[in-house]
């Protein structure tokens, strides 16, 4: 990878009270990457996502996207630039049918400008676009699934719905906060090709994960966080070789269950 990175995080720090949740984290993401972020619980992964996407204000450091300094911008402006995220705890609009969930992102300025995912500039009816997006992401169009109320959908579909919400904005970067967690084996098996498909569409992905096996299949670069510090970076094999990583993460029993 060479040239100016698409997303650059430089020395980002964030403290909650006395606890340093992130300390001087650097991260470069280039167009077309799938970057994995891993680390034990409480290592600051989600905080990093929140810091990049503007959901928390950082204390120090700089985040730049496409050459613009987006540090501490408001979340909606960052999303408007094409940097979107999913939430670890899914946040669908439970009382609405699944496809209606996409009306909100499709109503945004960015979606109107870009026509939504695949939309050619001008958008038709938002409902139609929404169902199109859901079909792409694995909701069977002719079944009743896209029309079911979100609260009645199983986790697998809700995770997809989270992704669909990002895609409705026609994003350049999607940050996935644990899309694999809580999925059954078969749901996971169908999620992996979906992520690969998104990469081929030209979407850059950052994946925060606990599921190392799936992540290592997908990611071309992995960053390891522990106690808010970046302790390793490289390909899956490279980070696995780090002594600190083994100590911090793989020394535990988790290595046996996951890898």
């Amino acid at each position: 990878m060479s040239g100016e990175p698409l997303l650059r995080v430089e020395g980002v720090s964030k403290a909650f009270g006395g606890v340093l949740a992130l300390s001087a984290v650097d991260l470069d993401v280039h167009t077309g990457d799938i970057v994995g972020i891993i680390g034990p619980n409480g290592s600051g992964k989600t905080t990093l996502v929140n810091a990049i996407t503007g959901f928390i204000k950082v204390d120090h450091g700089r985040v730049s996207f496409k050459g613009h300094d987006i540090t501490n911008w408001k979340p909606h402006k960052i999303a408007d630039m094409g940097l979107t995220r999913t939430f670890q705890v899914m946040r669908p609009y439970y009382s609405l049918p699944a496809f209606k969930n996409l009306i909100v992102p499709l109503f945004s300025r960015r979606a109107r400008r870009t026509g939504g995912w695949r939309g050619g500039g001008k958008m038709g009816s938002r409902d139609t676009v929404a169902v199109d997006i859901l079909e792409e992401i694995g909701f069977e169009r002719d079944s009743y699934v896209p029309y079911k109320v979100a609260s009645s959908l199983p986790t697998g579909y809700l995770k997809r719905l989270e992704l669909a919400r990002c895609l409705a904005l026609r994003p350049e970067v999607v940050i996935c906060d644990e899309v694999f967690s809580g999925l059954s084996m078969s749901e996971m098996a169908s999620m992996v090709p979906l992520i690969e498909k998104l990469q081929m569409e030209g979407i850059t992905l950052i994946m925060v994960e606990h599921r190392l096996r799936e992540l290592f299949r997908l990611a071309n670069r992995v960053v390891v966080l522990n106690f808010g510090c970046k302790i390793a970076e490289g390909t899956a094999e490279e980070v696995m070789a780090y002594k600190e990583v083994k100590e911090a993460y793989f020394g535990s029993e988790e290595v046996l269950t996951y890898v």
């Binding site: 979340p75 909606h76 999303a79 946040r91 609009y93 439970y94 009306i103 300025r109 904005l169």
Partner: peptide
């Protein structure tokens, strides 16, 4: 729907590129 989103789910609305 956007208004209802602001009520039920403001984080997701922000993440959808809409200023709540």
């Amino acid at each position: 729907l956007v208004f209802r989103g602001v009520k039920d789910n403001d984080q997701a609305v922000k993440a959808s590129g809409i200023d709540i």
